[in-house]
Design a binder for these strands. Structure first.
Lengths: 220, 220
DNA sequence: TCCTCGAATATAGTATACTTATACCCTATC
DNA sequence: GATAGGGTATAAGTATACTATATTCGAGGA
């Protein structure tokens, strides 16, 4: 039972609540595809596998339900959320709108220090796009969006965008080296608009960026 | 202990999980101001008061934390979320943007059946504004926004708007009969734009409506 | 007098045990 | 042979008991 040992070590090292670690473990297994869409997540099974009691597992499942990754039906238990095509469209639509708002705010606030940090992330990402692994790219992509959210400076918006990013992670995985490069060029264009203080352009580019990354036709 | 009896009755009547009922009870006490901002919500105390064990209370607190109503610090427990002025501004900004998006979508989709239902809610609300209690008004207001979200037809958006509505409930309580009447006139104007299929006007009115309800200057 | 260290208490985190509801399967009857 | 009803098994909901950590208050020394 590797997972058990792993969690116990983590428990010893950190003071993080078990539920958080369990949630992370389950989240991993879902995003990696080990738990396929619609499969049931039984509290007892998971608690045995992870070597903890049912309570932390239960809490973790509720947490993941709040994130939208799992669905809980009363007296029926938890299962991996099945995302319909409609819901995908909905999420992307909202995400595009929120990213646009954030880009607009970022261009307006125009905080030099945070923009410098964003520039740094962008430059790093340029290299990673060429040489790094897929995993590295995804992580750096996340960093860029997080940094851009910081420039925007709206904490509520930041949280919501992060949540949506997590929930759409599977949909947005870059399909090719070409798409990864395009993706990063779009980031650069957004940053330029932010630096220029061109809020409308920044908003437009950010929205379009989401649709492009989702490889969907934008019907606005 | 009235609350205890109340909950037990509900438990007998419905098959809703206790945690849901507990969450509702705590939510009520927070929004009604009985639990003031920043006050600690101790699991043991609440479980005693409500006549249930700590587990449902614990789950309820996590649920409320996910909604943003309470804040949980590891090993420190839960407290009523203190919302800073900055965060209020942030929430209103995001809410205005999302309501605008929804109104735009509603005007585009233009579903006659759902629009008819919305019209019904609007008409009812007109009467309540004049004769009903403050509580009735708040409930009807909620119904209108929920119905408008249905017309928009984006489920993800609907959930997010509901969450934001809950979190900003205190900020939006109508301060006067005059404001309540204005509020309802704004609703009527939004509906008209939706019926006309004028998506841009609907979006503009919806955003402005949020800022007006929050009694904030709109700086867009 | 104030600061620091430690012990006691309060409270969150976790485990285990018990209760209740749901689902599935088997049997009996039509 | 099919369907309805009951019984059993499985898993969620809830309670209680135990453990670990944080905070508070008091005592002792600087």
């Amino acid at each position: 039972m590797d997972k058990t040992i792993e969690i116990e070590q983590l428990l010893g090292a950190t003071h993080t609540p078990l539920a958080k670690l369990v949630a992370a473990a389950i989240r991993d297994r879902i995003t990696s595809g080990e738990f396929s869409i619609g499969s049931r997540l039984v509290e007892g099974k998971l608690s045995e596998e992870l070597g903890v009691s049912r309570m932390p597992v239960r809490e973790a499942l509720r947490e993941l339900a709040a994130e939208g990754l799992v669905t809980i039906e009363p007296r029926r238990g938890a299962s991996v959320t099945a995302v319909t095509d409609d819901q995908k469209r909905d999420m992307i639509e909202v995400r595009a709108t929120l990213e646009a708002l954030n880009a607009r705010l970022a261009a307006r606030r125009h905080d030099p220090e945070q923009i410098a940090r964003l520039q740094l992330v962008l430059d790093e990402g340029g290299k990673i796009t060429e040489t790094g692994s897929r995993q590295d790219f995804i992580r750096q992509n996340d960093r860029f969006h997080e940094a851009l959210a910081d420039v925007g400076g709206n904490s509520v918006l930041t949280d919501m965008m992060r949540s949506l990013r997590d929930r759409t992670a599977m949909l947005f995985a870059p399909t090719s080296q070409l798409r990864a490069r395009e993706n990063w060029q779009e980031h650069a264009a957004i940053l330029r608009a932010v630096i220029d203080g061109d809020s409308e352009l920044a908003a437009l580019l950010a929205a379009r960026h989401v649709y492009n990354a989702a490889q969907m036709k934008q019907d606005v």
